[in-house]
Design a protein around this nucleic acid. Structure first.
Length: 893
RNA sequence: GGACCCGUAGCUCAGUUGGUUAGAGCGUUUCCUUGACAUGGAAAAGGUCACAAGUUCGAGUCUUGUCGGGUCCACCA
């Protein structure tokens, strides 16, 4: 079989991503004979292009899905995309602005048509990229959060919640993005530390214009909307002023000094300006004290007619101007630097404005309750578990969810208002909430209805993802029954509140059941300096470029092996994956080149242990141990560990030792069989991690069995697990390593054979060495290994006079075996002795302690039987160890 | 202000319930290439496991505190 000596990943990537999809190999459907294993993809935004975060997130899902598929589950990975309201609208608005237009130059319908056109053209970009990554989704099932059916689910949910009284409309302070000109939820306002100022402003009293109350604020421009100044009722400094009237500079509004428990007398001056229309706390105070609500800002952040002389200025411009003017009026006490957290729009990073407006909200507490319980009771588990607390903490302090957005791209709120006949105006003020377009006002019969202009928050559709993707509520019942609840959800920490928590609430509320039982939270991909990767920072590494340069397997493998926690990624990190894929390729090439029988096949589990030599028993043991540990790691979402295990096994055991050991024995069909069997089964357990190279190699060796992605996971054969073989090989390997070490230090040509005396203190070791001289010869290039078993010997040959110098021979201790290599050199025997003596002493101390404990009646009574047994076992092994060490010391005398 | 995570080799990190000599990759140094692979092989150097106290026969691992780094939440104007 002719294979190139380099793994040609670009060809292989293209070939298999095509093949898998063309043959619909990832399709899953209701199958009563199999257990389902379902994962729903965190739907990427239609505006998305694959970044490292996606690459990691989807690789992890793919590993699990492929693994479970091979374990015999009906594994379904449900794909799809999210319409991503603001993000997508922004993209198209930017496109428009290049033409010198805004969305308001178009009608709503025209603008939406442009959005759909954009979606049709670019919306599947990321889907294609995911296919390049090898994502084994059931692609024909792909859903979009604005599909007709999906939209119905959204409307239906709105109606249900409205009817339950869990959706309400009201005027509250919300986070407002002046650039996007829409409301944002609390989660969509990202708080970032900003270096700002705390301005101490003087508000003069009405009756004594040269006397002031000093208030502290970070946003002086909002003063124009002040309708009170508040102090703490217990604050002695201000008690006398409560009830007095102040004159608000510039606008000359008369405002009262009020008292409110909320005010912290220790902060700032202890007196706070109250701006009910521009601050959530002030809003609450305003309600409590029935203050006037003066909104001084237009939706775009420009001051309005209530701002007096500052009307028409942008909010930040106005801040400067107001400070300037106040300074001239000597109304600024001082300005001190002040760091504080300021909300930013999570889409465009503009500073958000707390803004008073009429919005729709979801009442969250009743929804949160069952969702809290589900996690508390362990029905849903977080991996790693520490995220449980984060989730619970948020859920227990949950606040109502602002779901209306003043944009056009999204699910329009299913609410209509009657703008009908005059006589009915009052009665018709109640909104008409309806799943379908209502024909007439139920109160007055007018057909003059107007739908609410706003659309719903994107997450108001995403939170239905685990069941709406199956066609809920109208269709897909069979699929839902089978695939729901899903098994695992893979996502990043910042999505817990946005999505995970809300999906749990939606699942409980609408399906009556949790949406998934496991939530795996993976790390964030950062650059080498630990900064988040982002386009604006210019530190992003493009996964597609890595795929091009190193291959998809390399990208996957490298990302995952680094995914124990947050990942610090630089381009060189991907070499490990490329090199490993190449190694796999070349090792397979070696095996294939040496296999003579084209129909070779073997079932490792059915081999007769007694007929196998030590290296075979060992490599089989190592394979099974690896397969089991990889399974266990997968089940616990420890994918980086799984890859380390595979790496260690394949390189450290199979290539570096086993293949080297059998190098001269290829003609032996038995050797061919073992090598073939191990390689073939290794491809299986590596497949979820490196699907492309393994699939390609599988085709070369087991094509008749069909594609690797549909094969079953190797079954571990208990009777072939030989721990002893492992121990024995460890001894031989240590011996070989020691001899190589000596050769390297004394610069002996590796090709040159040397002689060596191996002196053992146990017959067991002697037998082991005798039986495996071939191994030693092969790996350590020993010309002749003489064994002197069960003898305690004097100093090494060479006739050393001083105890610390042995000339003409090197003595190396490998466990209990003394290895004397006549090369010339020096070894410090005294130092060795001291070291071992120290060990003996430590062991003896431990021995005493253990013995004592095992005599202690209380310990025996309290400790579980298995612990006692374990300790006893330990005692025996410690005893043996001490005896061995003593013998070694004796041999050094 | 509250919560969480991290500190182990020059760098990036493993280290599963406490237990023999604390591991890997990269980097560095030395040697090796006509037959699987230089995207390779053999080997070396490099660690008071942040610090301190405690529990224990025994602590990288458990407890407490200190220092240093990071993340999330929160209405301190």
């Amino acid at each position: 079989m002719e294979l190139s000596s380099r793994f040609n990943f670009s060809e292989v990537d293209a070939k298999w991503s095509q093949y898998w999809v063309d043959n619909n190999l990832f399709h899953a459907e209701v199958n009563p004979d199999k257990k389902p294993y379902t994962v729903v993809i965190p739907p990427p935004n239609v505006t998305g292009i694959l970044h490292m975060g996606h690459a990691l997130n989807n690789t992890l899902q793919d590993i699990m899905i492929r693994y479970k598929r091979m374990r015999g589950f009906e594994a379904l990975w449900m794909p799809g995309t999210d319409h991503a309201g603001i993000a997508t609208q922004n993209v198209v608005e930017r496109q428009l602005s290049k033409e010198g237009k805004t969305r308001h130059d178009l009608s709503r319908e025209e603008f939406l048509e442009r959005l759909w056109a954009w979606k049709r053209e670019y919306g599947d970009t990321i889907i294609h990229q995911l296919k390049k990554l090898g994502a084994s989704c059931d692609w024909p099932r792909a859903r979009f959060t604005m599909d007709e059916g999906y939209s119905q689910a959204v409307r239906s949910v709105f109606i249900r919640l409205y009817k339950k009284g869990l959706i309400y409309q009201g005027e509250y302070i919300i986070n407002w993005c002046p650039r996007c000109q829409t409301a944002l939820s609390d989660e969509e306002a990202e708080h970032r530390e900003l270096q700002g100022n705390l301005y101490h402003l003087r508000y003069p009293f009405q009756d004594e214009p040269d006397q002031f109350i000093v208030v502290a604020t970070t946003r002086p421009e909002t003063m124009l909307g002040d309708t009170a100044v508040a102090v703490n009722p217990k604050d002695k400094r201000y008690k006398k002023y409560i009830g007095k009237t102040l004159i608000l500079p510039f606008v000359n509004r008369e405002i009262k000094v009020i008292s409110d428990e909320f005010v912290d007398s220790k902060f700032g001056t202890g007196a706070v300006k109250v701006t009910p229309a521009h601050d959530p706390n002030d809003f609450a105070m305003g309600k409590r004290h029935k203050l006037e609500f003066v909104n001084v800002m237009k939706p775009d952040g420009v001051l309005n007619q209530h701002a007096g002389q500052f009307e028409g200025m942008d909010r930040f411009e106005a801040r400067e101007a107001i400070v300037e003017e106040l300074g001239q009026l000597k109304l600024i006490e001082k300005i001190e630097p002040h760091t504080h957290a300021v909300g930013h729009c999570y889409r465009c990073h503009t500073v958000v404005e707390p803004y008073l407006s009429k919005q729709w909200f979801v009442k969250m507490e009743p929804l949160a309750k069952p969702a809290i319980e589900a996690v508390r009771k362990g029905k849903i588990k977080f991996y790693p578990s520490r995220w449980t607390k984060v989730y619970l903490n948020w859920m227990e302090n949950i606040r109502d969810w602002c779901i209306s957005r003043q944009i056009w791209w999204g699910h329009r709120i299913p609410v209509w208002y009657c703008v009908g006949d005059d006589h009915c105006q009052l009665a018709c003020k109640a909104p008409i909430v309806s799943e379908t377009v209502p024909v007439a006002c139920p109160h007055c019969g007018s057909t003059n209805l107007k739908q609410d202009e706003d659309v719903l928050d994107t997450w108001f559709s995403s939170w239905l993802w685990p069941f709406a993707t199956f066609g809920w509520p109208d269709s897909g019942k069979k699929d839902l029954d089978y695939f729901y609840p899903t098994a695992s959800l893979f996502t990043a920490p910042e999505i817990i509140f946005f999505w995970v928590a809300r999906m749990i609430m939606a699942g409980k509320e609408f399906m009556g059941d949790i949406p998934f039982s496991d939530v795996y939270i993976h790390g964030t991909v950062r650059d080498a300096k630990g900064r988040k990767m982002s386009k604006s920072l210019g530190n992003a590494i493009d996964p597609l470029e890595i795929i091009k340069e190193y291959g998809a397997d390399a990208l996957r493998f490298s990302l995952v092996i680094n995914s124990g926690q947050d990942l610090f990624i630089s381009k060189e990190k991907f070499e490990i994956g490329r090199n490993f894929a190449n190694k796999l390729w070349n090792a397979s090439r070696l095996v294939l080149m040496n296999i003579k029988d084209p129909d070779i096949d073997v079932d490792l589990g059915k081999l007769d242990k007694k007929a196998l030599d030590l290296p075979s028993r060992w490599i089989i043991f190592r394979f099974y141990a690896t397969a089991e540990k990889v399974s266990a790691a997968n089940e616990r979402y420890q994918f980086s560990q799984a890859e380390s295990l595979l790496y260690e096994f394949f390189r450290g055991n199979f290539c570096d030792w086993y293949l080297e050991l059998i190098k001269d024995r290829w003609p032996d069909p038995a050797v061919q069989k073992i090598a073939f069997g191990i390689l073939r089964d290794t491809l299986k357990i590596m497949h979820p991690f490196m699907p492309f190279v393994t699939e390609e190699l599988w085709e070369k060796i087991s094509k008749e069995k069909g594609p690797l992605c549909r094969q079953s996971w190797p079954v571990v054969s208990r009777k072939l697990i030989d721990k002893n073989a492992d121990k024995e090989m460890q001894t031989l390997m240590a011996l070989v390593a020691a001899i190589r070490n000596v050769r390297s230090q004394w610069n002996v040509n590796p090709a040159e054979q040397i002689e060596c005396r191996l002196i053992t203190v146990s017959t067991k070791d002697a037998v082991l060495i005798e039986e495996n001289t071939a191994v030693l010869k092969q790996m350590a290039r020993l010309g002749n290994a003489r064994i002197e078993p069960a003898r305690i010997v004097g100093p090494a040959t060479g006739g050393a006079k001083n105890s610390d110098t042995v000339k003409n021979a090197v003595t190396v201790l490998v466990g209990n075996i003394k290895c004397v290599i006549p090369l010339g050199g020096v070894i410090d025997v005294d130092k060795e002795k001291k070291k071992i003596l120290g060990q003996v002493q430590e062991q003896e101390k431990a021995l005493d302690g253990l013995a004592q404990r095992l005599k202690n009646k209380e310990f025996l009574k309290k400790a579980p039987a298995e612990i006692v047994a374990k300790e006893k076992e330990r005692l025996t092994s410690l005893n043996a160890r001490v005896t061995e060490l003593r013998l070694v010391i004796a041999s050094l005398e």
